[in-house]
Amino acid sequence: MILGAPDADSAGLYAETVVSGDPSWAGPLANVALGLPVFHIMEPEIKAQIDPEVYKEHLELMEIALDVEKIAEGLDKVRKESS
């Protein structure tokens, strides 16, 4: 699963939902651990695989606006906790 969330909180919430189950215990994924691999589109290991021209057109600006490091840290935490 690839996310485009603008901050660490919302990216983390999505990730947790599809990795270990809905943290708000509200939706159908409450207590359901899908264990899907989840990344943000701007994480370095994903970025490295995208055609640089396409990346520039769609993401160059947002890379300045968003705190990519913090988003990646948040997702790392979710991924590590589930592994």
Binding site: P6, D7, D9, L13, L61, A65
Partner: peptide
């Protein structure tokens, strides 16, 4: 609710 600070992200953009 984890929906972030919408004005702030738009101003940063």
């Amino acid at each position: 609710q984890g929906s972030g600070n919408v004005p702030r992200i738009n101003y940063r953009t």
